[in-house]
Design a protein around this nucleic acid. Structure first.
Lengths: 109, 109
DNA sequence: TTCTTATATTACTAGGTAGTTGTACTTACT
DNA sequence: AGTAAGTACAACTACCTAGTAATATAAGAA
């Protein structure tokens, strides 16, 4: 088991950081339906081609997505659906956090 | 249920980004044992007082930790242990990723 | 009050990164 | 060969942020 301390903290932080960007989350969400090309990902997310390609490299390096080349097009797909389990956890935390802040606002009235 | 798209992507990314920093992961790990003051957290992590304090503000804002003031000292504690579930998931992914890269290296020999 | 302790905040610097533009590369087609 | 399409990459800019040093704030002790 990898411990959350010392040298490993950097590697683990890198993996979290890769998810800490709205565009990359949108790309993962778009890939949820299945394999997709760079061009179509750019369309779905509304991002520029070069930018989408660059973000995909980050996700690829961290192993969140995999790539398959066919002719001139690159097909990307989710490597490990566990990513979405993490998103659910962080969404749950987000809901709790929103509730907490709503209560604080109510208390101030 | 919060959807991973549109406006929410930014809020979710913020929560991931808060975990995408080695020092903040070290702080969470240090807090795993229980409530702790800023000074002791600085000692345990080897960070400067100002830096530790600033990182704690980020974790506080994202709701990962909670604060209790007593005299001049601030006591921080983990709000939701689910954070560590996320760390386990990302650690699992990290191990898979390391395995994958080891295999790639072996194949090149 | 004055001094000390613990924490938060400000100002600053250096390094990192998202987004864009332009371009190179690769493959397929005619 | 030449052309077109799809992707990756390099250079650039603007912004963000981690870390540090200095200072501010607040509570308690002498």
């Amino acid at each position: 088991m990898i411990e959350l301390s010392g040298t490993n903290a950097s590697a683990i932080a890198e993996r979290f950081k890769a998810l800490g960007e709205p565009m990359r989350l949108l790309l993962l969400e778009a890939l949820r339906r299945g394999e997709c090309s760079v061009g179509e990902l750019a369309e779905r997310t509304g991002g520029g081609q070069a930018n989408v390609s660059k973000h995909l490299q980050v996700l690829l390096q961290q192993g969140y997505v995999d790539r398959r080349k066919e002719g001139t097009t690159s097909w990307y797909r989710i490597t490990d659906p566990q990513v979405f389990r993490m998103c659910e956890l962080v969404c749950g935390g987000l809901e709790q956090e929103l509730d907490r802040k709503r209560k604080l606002l109510r208390r101030r009235k």
